[in-house]
């Protein structure tokens, strides 16, 4: 299994610049998963155990509004990395995540990786840098959407 996963992770832009030892450590926490359309990867309140490298398909992060149904906050597609709740206590999900179409992901065991980061702070720093960047990008997108630029401005 690891033989097929390691080349994928080693070449992934998210892990660009990481040394092979660390990539190997990360690969040790990875497994392939497949989700059918409509299937939930997790729901709000679940324990955040994993994060995902999306290989194929589309995932929607949603918030359920009473009487109004789910509203899609953001979708992610191939090449995207999804989920950081595993990094921060108390490690609970605050969104639902649903597969919009048939989706294949590499699921990384956050609990396993957290332990490795605690033991190897250099790995921890490399991981933190990348997630900080991911969060900065997401924040930028959210700021832009906050403007409602296509709205009528009235």
């Amino acid at each position: 299994m690891q033989q097929t996963l390691e080349p994928y992770l080693a070449e992934h832009p998210f892990l660009k610049g990481m040394n092979s030892h660390h990539v190997e450590l990360i690969t040790g926490c990875a497994e392939n998963r497949r989700y059918n359309p409509g299937e939930f990867l997790y729901r709000e309140g679940d324990e955040a155990t994993h994060f995902y490298f999306i290989r194929h398909g589309r995932l929607a992060q949603e918030i359920l509004r009473p009487q109004k149904g789910g509203i899609v906050i953001q979708t992610s597609g191939p090449g995207d990395v999804l989920g950081w709740a595993w990094l921060f206590p108390p490690h609970f999900r605050n969104l639902d995540c649903r597969a919009v179409e048939l989706t294949r992901v590499l699921a990384l065991d956050g609990v396993c990786l957290r332990e490795k980061c605690e033991q190897d702070h250099e790995l921890g720093y490399e991981i933190m840098k990348r997630f900080a960047h991911l969060m900065e990008q997401e924040l930028e997108s959210m700021r832009l959407r906050l403007l409602d630029i296509y709205g009528n401005n009235d």
Binding site: K68, I71, V72, I73, G77, D80, R98, R145
Partner: peptide
């Protein structure tokens, strides 16, 4: 699109994000 309910199967997010990939 910037926002949607569940009836939309396409992307939700800002257009600059599409450029990245």
């Amino acid at each position: 699109v910037d926002s949607s309910d569940r009836n939309w199967n396409g992307n939700v997010g800002v257009v600059p994000r599409l450029i990245d990939t």
